[in-house]
Design a protein around this nucleic acid. Structure first.
Lengths: 391, 391
DNA sequence: GGTCTTGATTAAATCGGTTAACCATCGGCC
DNA sequence: GGCCGATGGTTAACCGATTTAATCAAGACC
């Protein structure tokens, strides 16, 4: 009997049905303890069955169709009838079953958020900030938000497609992916409502909402140059991420690493993490000991870099200026407080939610929002040593 | 016609139906652009309608009940039939509609996460870490996770009840709430599956999974005392939060603030934030300039305190030692790196998910898990000045 | 007064599954 | 041989809403 399961596993459509068949047989007959009646009925009506749309209809002396229309604010319903129905609804404390609504209507009113698995993505203030915006706005517009962690296995079992095919969601947000990620192409090709949050795809026509990374990077470069910095190092994240590419472009176009030096020599990958930022700073300073400023493409890497520089015995900002990007909440509370570019991540979340919902409603025109960024000058930057009077 | 809506608003069961009626009339006839057929059918079968359980049944020459049983791994089905059905399922690339499954079965397989609205809660590494654990485990066990922001309005409109009554979820996680929060009592009384994540309720019988805050606090105190610190200040968060109370208890019981001093005088509320931590540190040092160590009940407050102390011109750790709590990722990358208590937040999330699912399945026995914590010694602590040879 | 609109309401089909109750088959056992 | 209990599968009723096509009432118009 047991092997009838095991030797079946090759044929089983795996995740399509129950994500982890062995783990979750979900045998209906085996649940111990205090099992209630047939269905998890959530007590109601003093022992009777839970009140449904039919009871409302009956009590209000209308048809269920009318009740449904009242629920959905259909303007066809008269003031009087509406009033009558609503009274009954309130009296019986009726609440429409969402699953039933979703099943028979066109929309589930559920949105998915796809996050990459960077260690613990949700724990990252960057994602958290965006997520907050999304959730708040979605809630305001009557939608719920579901989270998904996009691991290799997630793609392999085609969960991204299932999300739609099994009608889990009406649309999804993709945060932190690049053109390399094939699953995004699949989603777009299948014409599912998708929005790219804070990333751009050159090779893909997809709605997106981004911060003005280019503008932010330009502000940083201008600022550093005005402070007299001649040799600047850049710590960036994976170049497949479009925002990183934009920053790198700006950096390279300003030939900011000093005359004669190879540009790519002044850049290092910091892997988006503190640890990586520290390592990148080390590499940069080894190659160019005369670097007076480091520009990190996100705050975490900037913090890592700052940590390294300080441990090296160099002072920030007197010896080396450091600038970050994103303005995540705690950067104001490190010593020295980090100069950075403020990116309106929360607002990006809000805007994305609005856009995605429009798209779900059928708006066909492609959308491309760019939200402004600005420099936040704090303590980690100062005039370049060579430019100082006492130098 | 318009006022028929507005003057109706008093009667309308508000959020029960559409969270924001005015914002979201969702008029089916008004959507512009390329609207597809009747339902969002997600292309299928070369133009035909999407394949359902009946087609599978027909093609496999069995009843829909059999197909359903195969889907649900019901052991009644023979190896042979199962194989046959699965083959058809794979051939037609069939995927059961989740809404339909949820509607007719006892479970939605959706879990809710209730978060407090601390500015942007999700952006907090603390919550993020727990959340990661929850999501990963829930996914592994075939459940999806939904996020909710608990604002005052959320409670007022009784969304917490709706979550269950409208069958959005099978159960919820509550992270970061205290006994003060009446909605938790309501949920427990209604006997809905609820689990308190990293918090304890004395006056409420509710499942919970927590880190060993008491043990962690004891380790901190022991460590500081061994380093010779006689006067220690405590920065804590809101005392309604049980974990904070536990830390405060330990602190108070060790009369660590020096002889003769009023204990409550050595404690200050840091509001869980960096800003608050800085302010609390200021208050403490004003009251007790001879403080040689500050123990903050979370890392964010510790960072704030450290920031303030350093700005004051005092050195950390030479003049003042600082200890945090939680070990959120970036504390290792500030200067000096923060000594803190590691709390297995990710694991707390994982364990909570397991527990909640068990509870949903009907396990009736109350659960109380305590996960161990441990001290992470880094650079922000050292021997007390008075205890040093050179003092 | 009769017919034509127009607009509100309803009956019935549908969405896509699950499950309780029932039934056929077959080997085992007295 | 006849009765019994498994085993494996089917039938048909549901879950709780939405939506379409049909109906009915009431004014509008000639």
């Amino acid at each position: 009997m047991l092997n009838c399961f095991t030797n079946m596993s090759t044929l089983s459509p795996q995740s399509l049905l129950q994500p982890d068949p062995v783990d979750e047989p979900f045998d209906p007959s085996s649940s111990s303890g205090s099992t209630p009646g047939r269905r998890a009925s959530g007590r109601r009506d003093g022992g009777g069955k839970r009140v449904g749309i039919r009871e409302i209809a009956q009590r209000a002396e209308v048809s269920t169709a009318t009740v449904s229309m009242v629920l959905n604010q259909n303007p066809k319903i008269t003031d009087a009838t509406r009033r009558r129905v609503l009274r009954v609804i309130n009296e019986l404390d009726y609440r429409p079953n969402r699953q039933a609504q979703a099943l028979s209507s066109k929309y589930t009113r559920m949105l998915g958020v796809l996050l990459p698995t960077l260690r613990h993505a949700v724990a990252d203030p960057y994602f958290g900030e965006v997520l907050s915006g999304i959730i708040d706005r979605a809630a305001k517009r009557g939608h719920k938000v579901m989270l998904e962690n996009v691991k290799p296995d997630f793609i392999k079992t085609r969960q991204h497609i299932e999300l739609f095919e099994r009608r889990y969601v009406d649309g999804v947000f993709c945060i932190g992916f690049g053109g390399r990620h094939a699953f995004m192409h699949e989603l777009v090709e299948a014409e599912y409502p998708v929005i790219a949050v804070n990333s751009i795809f050159d090779d893909l026509t997809i709605d997106h909402v981004v911060c003005d990374y280019r503008g932010g990077a330009e502000q940083v470069m201008t600022c550093l140059k005005q402070l007299g910095h001649g040799r600047i190092g850049l710590i960036h994240g994976a170049p497949v991420v479009s925002t990183q590419r934009m920053i790198m472009d700006v950096f390279a176009s300003q030939t900011a690493c000093g005359q004669g030096a190879d540009i790519s020599d002044c850049m290092a990958d910091g892997l988006f993490t503190e640890r990586g930022g520290a390592d990148a700073a080390e590499a940069l300073l080894k190659r160019h000991p005369d670097l007076t400023a480091i520009f990190a493409a996100n705050d975490k890497m900037a913090l890592g870099a700052m940590h390294y520089v300080q441990h090296l015995g160099r002072r920030v900002p007197q010896d080396v200026s450091i600038v970050g990007f994103d303005d995540i909440p705690h950067t104001a509370f490190v010593t020295p407080a980090l100069t950075t570019i403020h990116t309106p991540l929360y607002e990006v979340g809000v805007a994305s939610a609005d856009r995605l919902i429009e798209r779900i409603r059928g708006k066909a025109d492609p959308i491309s929002d760019v939200l402004p960024t600005h420099l936040v000058l704090r303590e980690s930057t100062s005039i370049a040593p060579a430019a100082r009077p006492d130098a």
